[in-house]
Design a protein around this nucleic acid. Structure first.
Lengths: 109, 109
DNA sequence: TTGTTATATTGCAATATTACGATTAATAAT
DNA sequence: ATTATTAATCGTAATATTGCAATATAACAA
């Protein structure tokens, strides 16, 4: 299939999965880490920073932008990308609610 | 392609991506949430809890097990699954290091 | 205008993922 | 022994993802 049956899951479960999926590729992790490191928003820098072709980087950026985790603003021929602080904070809250639970001590395995 | 170029990324970036990928499907999120909720480890319960076919659940369980996030132990005809506390804690640390950074205030976008 | 630079889009090939029916393996129950 | 129960595996169809060459677009430069 290749198609996830999203309708049978809760909104929260789908939301977690969507964010996680965005982080599920090292290129997107690298892009985000670079945006965190360089306060000044960058763009073409990412292409030289990460050894992937320009269309590939552009594609990953698009995904992150569609999710809302990053923003881009045109500056002449360049496009300046940066983290969207509000969305990132919202995402953190959701991911923490999933990751930070009291871990039950297994009584079988 | 469909094949990620893992070699051009750091070990940490690949590690983050691997864990995130595991959470990138609502069924696996649901499985983990259920294991957190039900202290007592379950298995066939997951099949009735989540409306996916048994082989599909089994496949998702295998992925989580391969990553080490869950463990399974045979109990007669049943298999009892549970969270692997050590691995879960290690994963938390890694994901937090990625998610919980000081968010730079954008000066362009 | 013509060329240059920076990014996005398109189209496509290779591979991965999701889902499930059919089957298998292993134990339990009769 | 035979049958039922449970879970894993195999095989396969449908779809998604990754990566890039080629091309398009858009703004600036000469």
């Amino acid at each position: 299939m290749g198609l996830s049956k999203t309708t049978i899951f809760t909104k929260q479960q789908n939301e977690i999965a969507l964010f996680a999926k965005a982080f599920g590729h090292p290129a997107r992790v690298a892009i985000l880490q670079h945006l965190f490191k360089i306060k000044t928003c960058v763009c073409g820098d990412l292409v030289s920073e990460i050894k992937l072709a320009q269309p590939t980087i552009s594609q990953h950026l698009k995904e992150l932008k569609n999710l809302g985790l990053i923003q881009g603003s045109v500056e002449g021929t360049r496009v300046c990308y940066c983290i969207n602080p509000e969305k990132w904070t919202a995402m953190q809250k959701i991911m923490h609610s999933f990751l930070d639970k009291e871990i039950p001590q297994p009584d079988c395995c």
